[in-house]
Design a protein around this nucleic acid. Structure first.
Length: 554
RNA sequence: GCGCCGGUAGCUCAGUGGAUAGAGCGUCGGCCUCCGGAGCCGAAGGUCGCAGGUUCGAAUCCUGUCCGGCGCGCCA
């Protein structure tokens, strides 16, 4: 399906092109036309959609915006649903929808069902989305969890517009952190103090108590490094725990990628060879460098240290090669904002390996700060002082948590107060939306008991009440909200949309009685039942994209 | 010092060049004979950090500046 807004944009473009063809608008040679912009006006008297095309054209065709707007209006082709085209100062072209057409769309929404809102992009892509990717050295914190909520929501939206999405989790399975975790487990097991750079949390003690005999035997063998043996075992335990936590909030990953495999399978070596062949690698001071400055970085980057050990960036390069080899059109990375300094080198490496640098997209997620009693509380996995994702889910539930993180722009920092979150969870707007959905379902249940079925057949003439019209017009916007979210890679507008629909439904419910109080009200009742069903469908679809449940009753 | 992200109502936040800047929570005042009151209606509350600039039009773009956060490693 296409969105109504896109259809109207095409109509305005048609008007412009017709005016040019007819000579009513004259464009100087060599001038390129800007794309037509269309938007939803803030005030209802300005119509349902508006375009500033006339004002944009004014300097190009050297004419007054108001006259151009009139010309566009004159050449406006017939467009489904448009009842009136008006012109307003200083040159807006305002489109007013036909109320009968609007009302008739109730049937279209119900017919589309779960597919309503899923605008297909012109060219669906294969997209790899890597998110969370917290190293398995401890349970996920609320900070890590933000990436999980944001990433999972983004994937749902991308799938909603037709992309094929692979959800990927990348983790360090052989580095210093794993070794430190192993040494921490060893210390706990031996009843000794945890090393300075080890992990202090209680979960380490639990791990130490759960080490299987054969792992312990391997760790304590004559020439074994106990830190590594225990670290590998412990990190896999932790990783499995992370997977379970993520599953609890409804986030499932298609691929779990350990960093070591990138080296073991030769991806890093091959990628480095490729860069060397491209002339973008060099040796200096015993280390091997990538010439990132050739692509605009402010310094070159070490790939192999002077001790021949690969850097984290070496793995990143190998991973780029490995991901592209799987045929993805686009690689999306969701990183914490503190990694912003490493974004440029990733793009540069991709370009140097012959890929489109724009095929690599990094979304930086702003910090989550922890606040307790109004003061910022430093929280770290290493010291064991943190609120875990599991704590959060236990306290406020997955739906409220998804709403909390889903309703904020990714660039917005969050001060997270678990006590405040608990207190506010009772007031979380998500319940208002779910309540509206449950109420729709409830009305439909009662109607069914009375033998009344929804019927949108006469909706076009019956659903003319302002509350009905306002509700339907908003329902019709779901496709553009989803499309915008997918295109902008910013999804919080969905929560705002849910709230609007829920509010408009409440107003409709107040002003328009759905169930009949007499036989003569049955046709109207059936039309309103159809609208109730369409509303339920839209809320269900939107909540589904958010990964939030849509209860039949509460 | 350089770079990235923020600064909008009491609080938490939307607002990606449009018309009179919005929502939730909080505050104050109304509304239950009625399909679910987890609701509805109304009110108060703003120099969009500050100063210039571009534009027919700026919270939005540009420049400068102040404040907050985060980066700037042969750490991960």
């Amino acid at each position: 399906m296409t969105s109504l807004r896109d259809d109207l944009r095409v109509a305005i473009e048609g008007a412009r092109d017709a005016a040019l063809a007819a000579g009513d608008l004259r464009l100087p040679e060599g001038v390129t036309l800007p794309p037509v912009a269309i938007e939803r006006p803030a005030r209802p008297e300005h119509g349902d959609y508006a375009s500033n095309a006339a004002m944009q054209l004014a300097p190009l065709v050297r004419d007054a915006p108001m006259r151009i707007a009139e010309t566009l209006r004159h050449h406006m082709p017939p467009a489904a649903g448009v009842a009136e085209v008006s012109v307003a100062a200083p040159g807006f072209v305002n489109l007013h929808l036909d109320p009968a057409w609007v009302a008739s769309q109730v049937a279209a929404i119900r017919e589309a069902g779960t597919a309503f809102g899923q605008v297909r992009v012109a060219k669906p892509k294969r997209i790899n989305v890597e998110f969370v990717s917290a190293n398995p050295t401890g349970p996920l914190t609320v900070g890590n969890a933000r990436g999980a909520f944001v990433g999972d929501l983004l994937c749902r939206v991308l799938e909603g517009v037709g992309h094929e999405v692979t959800r990927e989790y990348y983790f360090n399975d052989f580095g210093t952190q794993v070794h430190n975790l192993g040494r921490s487990v060893l210390a706990r097991r031996d009843g000794e103090p945890v090393p300075e750079d080890g992990y202090q949390g209680d979960y380490v003690a639990d791990l130490a108590a759960a080490v299987p005999d054969e792992v312990w035997a391997a760790a304590t063998a004559a020439d074994a490094d106990a830190g590594w043996v225990l670290g590998r075992w412990a990190s896999e335990q932790v990783r499995a725990g992370i997977e379970a936590s993520l599953a609890r909030l409804g986030a499932h990953f298609d691929v779990w990628k350990g960093e070591s495999s990138l080296h073991d399978e030769g991806w890093v070596a091959r990628a480095v060879e490729q860069l060397r062949a491209a002339g973008q690698m060099y040796e200096d001071e015993g280390a091997t460098w990538f010439r990132s400055t050739a692509y605009g970085d402010d310094k070159d980057r070490v790939v192999f240290r002077s001790n021949a050990q690969p850097t984290y960036f070496a793995s990143d390069i190998g991973y780029l090669a490995e991901k592209f080899s799987r045929g993805f059109d686009e690689l999306v990375y969701l990183w914490g904002a503190d990694h912003h300094g490493t974004v440029a080198r990733l793009h540069n490496a991709a370009e140097a390996m012959g890929h489109d640098r724009d095929a690599v997209q990094v979304i930086l997620i702003a910090w989550v700060r922890f606040v307790r009693g109004g003061v910022v509380d430093s929280m770290s996995k290493r010291t064991g002082e943190f609120v875990s994702l599991d704590d959060l889910l236990a306290e406020i539930g997955a739906d409220a948590a998804r709403w909390f993180f889903g309703s904020r722009a990714v660039s917005t920092g969050i001060d997270f107060d678990i006590e405040l979150a608990k207190q506010q969870s009772a007031e979380n707007p998500v319940y208002y939306v779910q309540y509206a959905h449950a109420r729709c379902a409830s009305i439909q249940r009662i109607a069914a008991e009375r033998g009344l079925a929804p019927d949108a057949g006469e909706a076009g003439t019956l659903l003319q009440h302002p509350a009905e019209q306002a509700l339907i017009r908003r329902l019709l916007a779901l496709p553009e909200v989803v499309g915008d979210a997918a295109e902008r890679r910013e999804t919080h507008e969905l929560t705002a949309y849910c709230l609007e629909v829920a509010r408009l439904f409440s107003q409709f419910y107040r002003d328009c009685r759905v169930l009949p109080e007499g036989p003569d009200e049955v046709p109207m009742s059936q039309a309103r039942l159809a609208l109730t069903d369409a509303t339920r469908q839209v809320l269900s679809n939107a909540l589904g994209l958010l990964g939030i449940s849509a209860p039949e009753s509460m």
